[in-house]
Design a protein around this nucleic acid. Structure first.
Lengths: 207, 207
DNA sequence: CCCTGTGAATATTTTCACAGCT
DNA sequence: AGCTGTGAAAATATTCACAGGG
């Protein structure tokens, strides 16, 4: 089990490596990776060493092998099925976000409570009501539920999804979800990200 | 200058506090805040102490005052003007995201290069081409540029925005931007967030 | 000679634990 | 009695620096 910081950096290294590979490069040094991210080469080596001994002393890392290893650790060497709950503006943006499919994340099901939306299709995936969620989820092989409903409905939706057997949630609603032990929630709060920038701005203006 | 972790937690405390305040609560203890986030009360006190001495010994914190202080530190006691670059699905979702306006972030300008979109309005804000960006930006009081264009156009857009005088960027494109010293970029990478979940799932499946 | 992998040193962050205020 | 604010200890994370492989 790697620590969180290492995992986050591995994800970023992986993206950088895939770019280099696409441009035909086969080898890379820890220093080169570090430069892109302006961190230290020691950090990169330490992170990569958590994958086992992979580099070639005096030469660097074989990009192709490294990508395979990182993909393996991150679980990106297979497909994951997604359920989208909430087909609003944000839901649509997520559904059509090209980065997901590219990394193996596939929306297999869309749920919304607005009767005007039910029955419509996005790229062939029909928008459903949330009745009989459990049965539908089993048929569709859902690994992760993506919640993009308003804040005041997120808790209820989460409970529903969990009781239907999904244990991984990506939550875009700006509330802390109360979930049973063993359910994993990842929060993405867009306003929170802007507030971080706001802090930087506030500090800057004060100088 | 506070450290990053503290700032991120302050943002979350702030949200929790605003919720409590809305429900009529006037006082709160470090322990109560910690419980919501399942971290320790010592952590909460340490974070809050960076605002100066604010709690009442033996009693707790005055929620109203605490919110004002945190808002002040984060720069949320004023409005910030946003420029949206890229009026696609993600751009639209961001524009209409309710959390931004609530925290004082206001989209004042939209730019897109698709001629079919130019001239249309979203909630009264017209979509423009990016010609004469510098002049337009000055008139509109833009503090932060929100970039939601495809990955391969992000760098060029960033350069344009920076040369027009914007120093804070929130980048949704999955690429590292190369910007001059003094320009602050905050990255939000949706795929990256999912990859974190994927790692958790991968670890789980292996057990 | 150049770059990895890693012990050891350093720096940073979190937690403990308690004096002191109300 | 209850809770804050904070030194000091503990835990984590990062960087240094160098032995060793190619």
């Amino acid at each position: 089990m790697l620590n969180d910081h290492t995992v986050e950096r591995l994800i970023i290294y992986n993206r950088i490596l895939k770019n280099l590979y696409k441009n035909g490069q086969k080898l890379v040094t820890s220093k080169a990776i570090a430069q892109v991210l302006s961190n230290t080469s020691a950090q990169v080596r330490r992170d990569l060493s958590s994958l086992g001994r992979k580099g070639k002393t005096g030469v660097g890392y074989d990009i192709g092998k490294l990508i395979d290893d990182i993909d393996g650790v991150l679980g990106l060497n297979r497909k994951w099925g997604l359920l989208l709950v909430g087909a609003g503006n944000l839901g649509r943006a997520l559904f059509y976000y090209p980065g997901f499919r590219r990394e193996g994340f596939e929306f297999r099901m869309i749920v919304d409570k607005d009767p005007r939306k039910i029955g419509k299709k996005w790229s062939g995936v029909e928008i459903n009501s949330s009745t009989a969620l459990r049965r539908k989820i089993r048929n569709k092989q859902i690994d992760i539920a993506v919640i993009s409903v308003p804040a005041d409905r997120a808790q209820e939706v989460a409970e529903r999804v969990v009781s239907s057997g999904v244990n991984e949630i990506m939550n875009f609603a700006p509330v802390t979800l109360n979930v049973p032990e063993g359910v994993n929630v990842r929060y993405v709060d867009l306003a929170l990200e802007l507030e971080n920038l706001s802090y930087q701005l506030a500090v800057r203006k004060k100088r």
